[in-house]
Structures are given as C-alpha cells and as structure tokens.
C-alpha cells in the first residue's frame, strides 16, 4: 500500500523514534515490527478513542442528571438515539438477558463504526484496515463468550465439546475446537477484508459521491455484522444444553 506513507501521521514528531523502538532488539522477536512496517493504525485507533471521548464529554459534561432531553438536535441526543437503537437490537437478538452485555457490544459497535467512518475522510486511514485492530476486537469476544458460557453452565459447558456421548469424544473434540477457532478468525478477517477493499475503491475513485455512499453503507453494515455475530456467539454459549 504505497499511499499509506503520505498521511499526516508520518509527520508526527514521535513517529520515527517510536517506530524504530518497535523495530529494535529490545522487543521480543515475535512482537517486533517488520523492516518497512508502520503503526499508523494505532495512531488512528487512538484518534477514534479521543474523538469518542470528546463527544461524550461535550454531550454529558454539564447537565448529566437531566432526565428530559433537550429540545433540539444535540450531540447528547444523537448519542442517546444510538445507544437506544443498540439496546433494541440486543433485545431482539439475545432476548431480555442480553441487556447486561451492552457495555461490551455497544463499545465494539461504536468503536468499529467510527473506525470505519474515519477512512472516508481524505487523509485518514480506517484503523480497521489492519488485521491487528480487527483481531484485537474479535479475540476479546472469543474469550468473553467462553467465559459467560462457563459461568452459566459450569463444568457442563465442556460437554458441548465432547458431543452427545462418550465414545465419539475423540472425534468430536477436534471438530468443535476447530469450529470455535474459526469464529474469531472469520470475524476479524471479514471486517479487515471489507474495509480494506472499501478503502481501496474509495481511494481509486475519489470525487465520486457514489463511492462515498458505498463507503458509508459498508461501514455501517460491517459494524452491524460484527456485533450481530458476537451476539449470536454469546447467546449460543448461554443457551441450554441440547
């Protein structure tokens, strides 16, 4: 991706020293950054977090205990509509017990949505067009749904892995493990692939309002798909033993 080294982040004062620190020997070899690698997606992800934090502070800074919403369109109202829609979606997909997972699912949804949308602004990259960012979103989901499964079912959760009866357990166990491992991988690869492709199309055809519309559409759909699948995995883990 040749175009990637001309964004504003390469002009950051600490970029050079930080990149060469990540490439140096003080980092263990399996974590070390490659020769021509960069960490631009990390800066962009931090930027998204900062944008979201500022939005929340603007929206909720002053009168956070007001129950009555303001009469005009404000940042606070937009945020509340967003969270309300998310709650409705969670309620539809996971049932009433899904509400307590809003912190995780809502965070993922809003973070991924804003990451995807950041790529539509000229000069910015979507952080989600790097596999590390998407994997960082998918792996916590993987551990979390196993955690809630174990917490709900206790040791009986392991039963899901060994199939209906004991003799075929050696056969079922690798099958189950592989099908569970495929989940975080497919979650992260789907988001990464879609956003990379979308960003390339947008970069090739700037000025076409159609590509921008497509970009907004893909950004929303991919964020939606990510949280939908996460919710499906969670409700599968919570479901009763079949």
């Amino acid at each position: 991706m040749e175009g990637h080294d001309i964004t504003w982040v390469s002009k950051l004062p600490f970029n050079d020293s930080f990149t060469s620190f990540l490439q140096s020997d003080s980092i263990p070899s399996f974590l070390r950054l490659g020769e021509d690698g960069n960490v631009f997606h990390v800066y962009h992800a931090i930027l998204v977090v900062l944008i979201l934090t500022v939005l929340v502070f603007i929206g909720y800074g002053k009168r956070s205990e007001d129950l009555v919403p303001e009469g005009r369109i404000s940042i606070r109202n937009i945020l509340e509509v967003l969270v309300e829609q998310l709650l409705k979606l969670i309620d539809n997909t996971m049932g009433h017990e899904g509400k307590k997972f809003l912190p995780l699912i809502g965070t993922l949804a809003i973070f991924i949505l804003f990451c995807n949308l950041l790529g539509l602004i000229p000069g910015f990259l979507p952080p989600t067009d790097n596999i590390n960012t998407t994997a960082a979103c998918a792996i916590p989901v993987f551990f979390f749904y196993h955690y809630i499964g174990v917490r709900r079912h206790g040791w009986r959760y392991v039963k899901q892995f060994i199939g209906p009866f004991w003799p075929i357990a050696p056969l079922m166990f690798p099958i189950e493990v592989i099908s569970h491992l495929a989940r975080p991988l497919s979650l992260s690869l789907r988001l990464f692939g879609n956003i990379t492709g979308d960003h390339i199309i947008l970069a090739m055809s700037y000025g076409f309002i159609l590509a921008l519309g497509l970009g907004i559409f893909v950004s929303g759909i991919q964020a939606l798909v990510f949280i939908l699948l996460s919710m499906m995995y969670m409700s599968n883990a919570l479901a009763e033993e079949h």
């Binding site: 099908s179 497919s186 499906m232």
Partner: peptide, 14 residues
C-alpha cells in the same frame, strides 16, 4: 444477510 452470509467464510476458514 449479515447473519447468514457469515456462514460461508466460517466454513472456509474452518
């Protein structure tokens, strides 16, 4: 579409 379109990629990756 999102939910069922996901199956394809999951099968391949498995």
């Amino acid at each position: 579409i999102g939910r069922y379109g996901a199956i394809g990629l999951e099968m391949g990756i498995a």
